[in-house]
């Protein structure tokens, strides 16, 4: 599903975020990428979603080298990937329902089917009764679950999450981790960058240290 082949990423003015990284993630696997702050976890996820391009090496997603994709092809790659961002990136002037609807509108889903999918995704993360609320009216844990619902509403084959349990209390963090496990159990490939790797028992582990993969 995902293959990193001697991938390095250097940010100007010469900061190495990732160095010579090679690994593989099979379809349906759950992988936890851990490491200290600044180890390169977020950069790794950004390379997979082609938000950033590798400086050297190839990042293959579903057999396709995403580092070499033209700008016009990026939207179609990103529609196959569900992303939960560290800062959630919710639209605070739109309702819970409209936030989750956005990926489906972008993908051009017919309105009636899309509405059903949005409700199903919200039910799945336990926000079925909050669809008219604005994100600002939700708690931190609910906002995180909303971000997950938006990431999975397209039914992607690959789910990326950047620190999904950050700033959550332990009980809410366990709830959120359980949701990721549920998606993994139905065959979704899940890649989570987190410092709290113990929340995801049974997942394959990739340990980063200053941009390098520890054995």
């Amino acid at each position: 599903m995902i293959r990193f082949d001697r991938v390095s990423k250097r940010y100007p003015p010469g900061v190495d975020a990732l160095s010579d990284l090679s690994f593989e993630v099979a379809g349906g696997q759950m992988v936890v990428v851990s490491g200290h702050s600044g180890a390169g976890k977020s950069t790794l996820l950004k390379l997979i979603a082609a938000v950033e391009k590798s400086t050297t090496g190839a990042v293959l997603v579903g057999g396709q080298n995403v580092s070499g994709l033209p700008r016009s092809a990026l939207p179609y790659l990103r529609r196959r990937i569900g992303m939960v961002f560290q800062d959630q990136k919710l639209l605070f002037d739109r309702s819970v329902f409209e936030n989750v609807m956005l990926p489906l509108s972008i993908a051009g889903f017919p309105a009636r089917d899309a509405a059903q999918r949005v409700r199903a995704a919200l039910e799945k993360v336990g926000l079925g009764n909050r669809e008219k609320a604005l994100p600002v009216m939700l708690s931190g844990g609910e906002q995180q679950r909303l971000a997950i619902a938006r990431a999975v509403v397209n039914r992607p084959s690959l789910l990326l999450a950047d620190e999904p349990t950050a700033h959550l209390d332990s009980e809410t963090a366990s709830d959120v981790a359980r949701i990721f496990h549920e998606f993994h159990h139905v065959g979704v490939t899940v890649l989570i960058a987190t410092y709290a790797s113990d929340l995801f028992p049974g997942a394959k582990r990739l340990q980063l240290d200053h941009g390098r993969l520890l054995p």
């Binding site: 529609r79 639209l91 956005l102 972008i106």
Partner: peptide
């Protein structure tokens, strides 16, 4: 700007 950025990350084309 935030909405544009989110839309791009969710797979929106330039036209959209």
């Amino acid at each position: 700007r935030a909405e544009v950025e989110v839309s791009q990350l969710l797979g929106a084309t330039d036209a959209f």
